[in-house]
């Protein structure tokens, strides 16, 4: 099972002028084994959706529910959500100086499984995941995200996705800033994850090009803090041809 249900989600952030509502009632269901793409112009609230689901302290939930297989995610801490099966691939993965990738991955895997991974198989798994993402084996000894190129950061996120094996992956603009080769590698990582049983993917993107490599089951156009229109993959094609203008004008 991997059903992510978002119902009438409302989220605000604190600004100098008081609370500002960013998400104005988002409703979405990602069924078992489905991949949904969320597309929208800058500032539409796509990333807010991703971070709110993951529990970033900057965002205040003012209404609605988010459940994973029926469990209330919003009542959980950030790490409890991850242990419940949620994974957020970040647009700007954070540097953690002095903490090696190897130590980080083992600590995360131990936390998520509730027990330390078996050393021998784990090393193989890590090396395999790194190789698939075209990351050098010495990568494990580097500090988390420190000095990584933009592409390395994203491929490192995808290696984590493979190793931590969540139920649902929320990918926040994982495709942004990648050249075509890196985009293909990252897409392959997403597709390999999708091939596993019962995995849900929420793919948040500004551009349609990743959808050439990762075929979504559903596409949602996100404008001004809510879903403006939903459809099949053909909706992405329309966006590719015509851009967001029609949706942005409709929402004004």
């Amino acid at each position: 099972m991997s059903k992510l249900e978002i119902k009438d989600l409302r989220v605000s952030v604190d600004t100098e002028d008081g609370a500002k509502e960013i998400l104005k009632g988002v409703t979405l269901t990602i069924g078992d084994g489905e991949t949904h793409a969320i597309m929208g112009p800058n500032g539409s609230g796509k990333s807010t959706l991703a971070y709110s689901i993951a529990g970033h302290p900057k965002y205040t939930i003012t209404g609605g529910t988010v459940t994973l297989d029926g469990d209330d995610l919003l009542s959980m801490t950030v790490d409890e959500r991850a242990r419940a099966g949620l994974f957020l691939a970040m647009q700007y993965p954070v540097e953690v100086p002095g903490v090696s990738v190897a130590n980080f991955l083992r600590t995360a895997k131990t936390a998520i499984d509730g027990e330390a991974p078996k050393l021998r198989t784990w090393v193989k798994e890590v090396n395999g995941a790194m190789e698939k993402m075209n990351l050098d084996p010495t990568f494990s000894q580097r500090s988390v995200n420190e000095g990584f190129s933009g592409g390395e950061k994203k491929r490192h996120e995808m290696a984590q996705l493979a190793l931590l094996d969540p139920k649902v992956a929320v990918l926040d603009e994982t495709d942004s800033g990648l050249d075509i080769d890196a985009l293909k590698i990252v897409s392959e990582g997403i597709n390999t994850f999708r091939e596993r049983e019962n995995k849900g993917v929420l793919l948040i993107t500004h551009y349609t090009r990743i959808l050439r490599y990762v075929k979504p089951d559903r596409v949602h156009v996100f404008v001004d803090g809510r879903v403006a229109e939903s459809g099949g993959p053909e909706l992405a094609e329309e966006l590719e041809a015509n851009g967001y203008d029609r949706f942005v004008r409709a929402s004004v």
Partner: peptide
Amino acid sequence: QLFYLRSRGVSETEARRLVVHGFFND
């Protein structure tokens, strides 16, 4: 940093510990 580590399932206490060890490690 704490959010990133916790979003990978690591508890807050453990995340803080990792950050401090990381700070001194080099």
